[in-house]
Design a protein around this nucleic acid. Sequence first.
DNA 1: ATACTGAGTTGCGTAAAGCAACCCAGTATC
DNA 2: GATACTGGGTTGCTTTACGCAACTCAGTAT
Lengths: 153, 153
Amino acid sequence: MPARKSLEELQCSVANTAELVGDQWTVLILRDAFLGIKRFDDFQRDLGIARNVLADRLARLVQAGILDTRPYQDRPPRHEYLLTEKGKDLLDVLVAFRRWGDKWNAPDDRFIRPLRHLECGEIMEGVMCCNHCGQPLDHRNVRVEPSLAPVSR
Amino acid sequence: MPARKSLEELQCSVANTAELVGDQWTVLILRDAFLGIKRFDDFQRDLGIARNVLADRLARLVQAGILDTRPYQDRPPRHEYLLTEKGKDLLDVLVAFRRWGDKWNAPDDRFIRPLRHLECGEIMEGVMCCNHCGQPLDHRNVRVEPSLAPVSR
DNA sequence: ATACTGAGTTGCGTAAAGCAACCCAGTATC
DNA sequence: GATACTGGGTTGCTTTACGCAACTCAGTAT
């Protein structure tokens, strides 16, 4: 195809994020990274992804500052891929995916891996809340306001 | 490419969601839908997406029950695309994308469209919280537990 | 009679996904 | 001391789907 269209000029955080993360494999690689997978072959085996595509995605994530490589042995030289702070901050996105998927496409219950919140000790699900009043969001109560720019997006 | 690999057998809500939403255009179409765009040509103009790709994505979203078509005039017959409840429930995902993008790739401030929470009346950002104790999530405090299935994923 | 609008469909060229095979350094095995 | 294995890729090939432009088709406006 003609080079995938760049979304940068859209000047929108959703678009910019989608450009990085809006790809099935990238999402799954991140999921695995949150589950503790660190090595090339482990990602490959777990996802069944083509090796060249995996190499490409890992490089892209490293370049975006979402993953970082760290050598774990010298001879032979080997390294692993770890989430950076920027990468770990994507947890919200994955939790949102997960909650929606559980709710609407409910896979076999036996395959759901529960999340435990260490702060309160309970099994949890994520809820997106207002940072101001703390109430859970409902699409009926969120309004997108015009931007400050002259010709808005 | 050889048919995009199906992720269904992965038995994972994140994977299933990624299969539907894990595509740049789909994310942007949903963003536009939340902004109130309803018609084919408006999506097309706004995103600059190829018309055949747009037709494909819209059909896929309708088939997934995320969008629904509704006629808005008979002669000539015309219809618009509206978010279903299932679709509106994806708000969390978009809010998570947005928050992450604003934080780490901060585009020009003038282009950020503020969100207003009608319940408390304030300009807000979303925060992913524990549905149990209400505290904001932090990756250090979330642990993925093993699933109940014999061979887990 | 011509042009315009909305909502697509068709056809074409190119790039990217998938697959398998290969590579290379070091380590373990027979 | 030749062979096999491991980790982390790269190369080559085929097939698919993206981007673009052009076309369609029904109805409406000029």
